[in-house]
Computed example of a mutant assay.
Amino acid sequence: MYTIFVLYQALPAWLSLSRSQREAFFDRKTTPLFARFEQEVQVRLFDAEAFHARFSDVMMISCNDLNQYYVFMEALRDTELFSKPYIEVKEVIVTRENGFKPFGKVGG
């Protein structure tokens, strides 16, 4: 199992939208995309702006195959989140759950 943390910053174009406009955007664009890929990737969203100055949000994506993550991210990049742009990705951290376990069996 892989977990990918996508750390991003909401941009002024996003922040200038009203909260109802942001919610409508998610309902129209993002929620259907998440549903389309729900068998391949699981997505959770976290707010961080009150706790971190460089990243306003974190998207946590879990998957069993990094190709599934890749296809999901390409589809997400085709949305206005990236093209407007509404967000700027600052960092991506790919992790492997309990990665030390299989390594311990073969690596030492």
Rank of each mutant, 00 (worst) to 15 (best):
E74Y: 02
A50Y: 04
F34I: 14
T3Q: 10
T3C: 04
S18D: 06
D27I: 05
L45Q: 15
D57C: 04
F46N: 09
F34M: 11
P102K: 09
E88S: 13
K101F: 13
Q9E: 06
S62D: 14
E74R: 12
S18P: 01
V92T: 12
M60S: 07
L7Q: 02
L15I: 01
A35S: 15
T31S: 11
N64P: 03
D27A: 10
R19P: 01
V71S: 02
V41F: 06
E49S: 11
D57V: 00
L81R: 06
S20Q: 12
N98L: 09
T95E: 12
Q39A: 15
N98S: 14
F5L: 13
H52M: 08
M60R: 15
T30H: 11
K29N: 08
T95K: 09
E88L: 08
Q42T: 14
K105R: 14
D47G: 11
L17W: 04
V92A: 08
F51S: 13
S18V: 06
E38M: 10
L66C: 09
I93E: 07
Y70G: 00
T30N: 07
K105D: 14
E74S: 02
A48N: 06
P32D: 03
A13E: 09
R96E: 12
V6L: 07
L66T: 02
G108Y: 13
T3I: 12
F26G: 06
Y86G: 02
V71T: 14
R36P: 00
E80V: 04
R54T: 08
C63A: 11
R54V: 12
E97W: 08
I87R: 03
M73P: 01
V89P: 11
M60P: 06
Y2L: 00
L33F: 10
S18R: 03
T30Q: 05
R22L: 10
P12K: 03
V94T: 10
Y8G: 09
R36D: 08
S83A: 12
A10V: 00
A53G: 05
K84R: 13
E23V: 02
S20D: 12
E40D: 14
E40L: 13
Y8M: 03
A50W: 00
Y8V: 03
S83E: 10
M73G: 06
G104D: 14
T95A: 08
I93F: 04
K105Q: 15
E80L: 10
L11T: 01
A10M: 00
F46R: 10
F5C: 07
F100Q: 10
L66D: 03
Q39K: 15
R77P: 02
Y69T: 05
